[in-house]
Nucleic acid binder design. Structure first.
Length: 577
DNA sequence: GCCGTTTTCGGCCCGACTGTTTTCAGTCG
């Protein structure tokens, strides 16, 4: 059973308990545990079977047992009991914005509302507003929320690559406005998360309301609320909501810290503050004894006041960064400027849009020292396959190009291939063809639905193949679209560490694969990570920023990443393998 | 239900907003 399924079951059980009127902290415990399970890089089902699920933060003995029950029988007894008491469709209703478990329970008790259809009917008939504490406005909001849920996926998450350019464009426009002072993108966009629910922008301004009005009039904004001195809430034409908050300059750091999050990070930070006799909020830090409030214009002062080293936004996920900051043991994170080469790209030979020379020149212009072209291999299909004789001609073309354009030695192109890993773990070129290449990436492109055991064996075989330099997009996931295939990340990482095979973080913003959790696990296992774009045209070589973002969120330092090395050292890595 | 340089029991972040209320509960981020 997958981590996501276990997490879903526990989150549902938490909501069932909430409907049953359980203590809110108990409910919170189920939600926190579900989140930790969802984020775990290793199989929680296996952990629980081994009695080790309690190693996860927020999972104790009770939940350990419930996970075992779930994995072995497919259900949790407590959940079955509660589902006999309430229709499980009540859990659906709690997903409507503004409808919590308390309200849903009342509607069930007093009006017998069990489904979304029941709810719509009751609202349309005006039966909800007759209940004490729920008026006509609430009823109207329910109907509007139901409509929004049907019309489009309003409020759904979008890829960072959709949110980030919009956030940057809006922030830049606001900065230009004469009323603006400071403008910073906060929230999950600033943390460079994989996906974002909305865009948060923090600002100070001489004329706050004018700045809010400027946002309302921005060409990307489709719908805007009421501009005030406090800011504005708006929605772009693409359906992304944008929240602008304007504050006094002296508390700018407090507000930025608060709205950068994450929620988990802030909770941990504030719990620590409470132990120090302090109370942290977006308005400042209050001394609980004296009631005195300190405000901080620079964000770093917030961390300093709490006795912590400055924590980079990408690390603020409640994954141990506060303890590390306390001990001065935060990593020196890799930066985009550290990257000296890109080792996964496609050209017109397979499914790319630009030629070998166009791609090479674009890579050189980005300041790289080395660049690998890795078109798809013989069994790729879609009419994009490259047969062995074509590949060997490509090797000649690369040699000729290096000689013609890059003979001064400051830049070189590696002749490579992205070779398919066949279901049995073999590669789809003969060894003597692979021996002609400078660089081999091995990736899974077919037969995703193998058992965990078979898929693990398949990938371990590829990683242990002495002709393979690097494993490509290891999980096969597509963010918001396709789940990763099932394999044992730990086993593959151990095999890669043993055999000196690199594993890539694919910077395609749909992939970000290795994920940040898996990249951290692999690097800790001793795997050398490679940051690649998988660019299919010159423009997407810029996706290196997303590979770096994932690496930073995985706590990676330059030394853990192969292609931060200058060519002379990278070359030695290739020779050693 | 979890967890421990204040605790194995008694705590568990903080504030804004909304819609309904005469002081607040519920929901959200």
């Amino acid at each position: 059973m997958r981590n996501a399924e276990i997490a879903d079951a526990l989150a549902e059980l938490g909501t069932l308990y909430e409907l049953d009127g359980a203590d809110r902290f108990r409910v919170l415990a189920y939600r926190d545990a579900a989140k930790a399970i969802r984020q775990s890089p290793v199989s929680v089902a296996e952990l629980a079977r081994a009695g080790r699920a309690t190693e996860l933060p927020g999972v104790g003995k009770t939940l350990q047992q419930k996970i075992v029950d779930l994995v072995e029988t497919g259900t949790i007894p407590a959940a079955e009991k509660l589902k006999a008491k309430f229709p499980p469709s009540l859990v659906e209703i709690t997903r409507i914005p503004g409808m919590g478990a308390k309200t849903v329970r009342r509607l069930w008790d007093e009006l017998g509302i069990a489904t979304l259809d029941d709810l719509r009917e009751a609202a349309e008939q005006g039966r909800i507003q007759k209940l004490r504490g729920l008026g006509p406005k609430f009823e109207r909001n329910v109907l509007e929320a139901l409509e929004r849920m049907e019309v489009d996926g309003a409020g759904e998450r979008v890829l960072l690559s959709e949110a980030l350019p919009v956030a940057e464009e809006i922030a830049a426009a606001l900065r230009e406005h004469p009323a603006a002072d400071q403008v910073t993108v906060a929230g999950s966009v600033r943390r460079l998360a994989e996906t974002c629910k909305d865009i948060d922008i923090i600002a100070t301004a001489s004329e706050p309301k004018q700045l809010a009005e400027a946002l309302a009039e921005h060409e990307l904004i489709a719908v805007a609320g009421n501009p005030t001195d406090a800011g504005l809430r708006a929605t772009t034409h693409a359906g992304i909501s944008v929240d602008l908050r304007i504050v006094e300059p002296d508390a700018y750091g407090n507000l930025l810290q608060h709205f950068t999050g994450s929620a988990a990070h802030n909770v941990e930070l504030r719990e620590r503050a409470v132990r120090m006799g302090l109370s942290v909020s977006e308005h400042g830090i209050t001394n609980t004894e004296t009631g005195e409030v300190e405000r901080h214009a620079p964000e770093a002062e917030v961390y300093e006041r709490l006795g912590l080293a400055y924590i980079e936004p990408e690390l603020r996920e409640g994954r141990g960064e506060i303890k590390a900051a306390e001990r001065g043991e935060l990593p020196e994170l890799v930066e985009l400027e550290d990257v000296r080469g890109d080792l996964h790209s496609h050209t017109t030979l397979s499914d790319g849009k630009h030629t070998l020379e166009e791609m090479a020149e674009a890579a050189r212009e980005r300041g790289y020292e080395y660049f690998a072209v890795t078109d798809h291999s013989a069994t790729h299909g879609f009419g994009n396959d490259v047969q062995a004789d074509q590949l060997l001609r490509r090797v000649e073309e690369v040699r000729e190009l290096n000689e013609r354009l890059y003979s001064d030695g400051s830049f070189r192109v590696l002749a490579g291939s992205e070779v398919n890993i066949l279901p049995n773990g073999d590669l789809d070129y003969p060894d003597e063809v692979l021996d002609e290449l400078d660089w081999v990436i091995a990736s899974v492109h077919t037969s995703f639905r193998m058992t965990r055991e078979k898929m693990t064996k398949r990938m371990v075989a590829a990683v242990e193949n002495p002709r393979v330099n690097c494993l490509g997009h290891p999980s096969g996931r597509l963010l918001l679209r396709r789940e990763p295939y099932d394999f044992d990340v730990e086993a593959v990482a151990e095999a890669a560490a043993r055999s000196g095979t690199m594993i890539e973080i694919n910077g395609n913003p749909n992939r970000r694969d290795l994920s940040e959790q898996n990249a951290r696990l692999a690097a800790e296992a001793g795997v050398l990570i490679c940051l690649n774009t998988d660019a299919h045209q010159t423009g997407t070589l810029a996706n290196m920023r997303y590979a770096v973002a994932t690496a930073r969120r995985a706590w990676l330092e330059p030394k853990q990443i192969a292609n931060t090395r200058p060519w002379s050292e990278f070359q030695k890595l290739l020779e050693a393998n």
